[in-house]
């Protein structure tokens, strides 16, 4: 059975191109424009991984969503791949988090910085989920 990826990002082109790439690699995709939409989807669908943009309409929304997910026993097992548009260090220091020190405490399983090469996206998801789909 194909694995399910939930993409949470307010950038419609990023969402659509990521869906095209992931479907071509055998994944099923779901998408949400923001954290609230993501939680609505999670009421009926449990994905195998969540791609989560850190900066949506509200700054740092991705962090809020990831913390809320990890605090919920129903969702804490879903791996999160955080997507950043600027760079990981800049994004994190903006929220007073130093990835070199605090990474193990961050409520995510991986980071990718935009722009993301298609292969890089697929490989990182495979690394986190732990097995190949197609």
């Amino acid at each position: 059975m194909s694995k399910k990826v939930l993409i949470v990002d307010d950038d419609p082109e990023f969402v659509e191109t990521s869906e095209i790439i992931l479907r071509a690699h055998g994944y099923e995709t779901l998408s949400a424009n923001n954290g609230d939409e993501a939680f609505k989807i999670l009421k009926s669908e449990i994905p195998d991984i969540i791609l989560l943009d850190i900066m949506m309409k509200t700054k740092g929304e991705g962090l809020w969503v990831s913390e809320k997910l990890k605090a919920d026993k129903n969702f804490r097992g879903i791996p999160i791949l955080m997507i950043t548009a600027v760079n990981q260090d800049a994004d994190m220091s903006k929220f007073h988090i130093d990835p070199s020190i605090d990474q193990e405490y961050l409520p995510v399983d991986g980071f990718l910085q935009k722009p993301i090469e298609p292969d890089e996206l697929v490989q990182e998801i495979e690394r986190i989920i732990g097995d190949k789909v197609s």
Binding site: S18, I21, A85, V86, K114
Partner: peptide
């Protein structure tokens, strides 16, 4: 400003990637 510029550039890059890499 970095974010506002990089986010659309990254999207354009993704669009070019999926077309050039033959996904479509």
């Amino acid at each position: 400003i970095s974010h506002e510029l990089k986010a659309p550039i990254a999207s354009v890059y993704n669009i070019l990637n999926v077309i050039i890499d033959g996904y479509l």
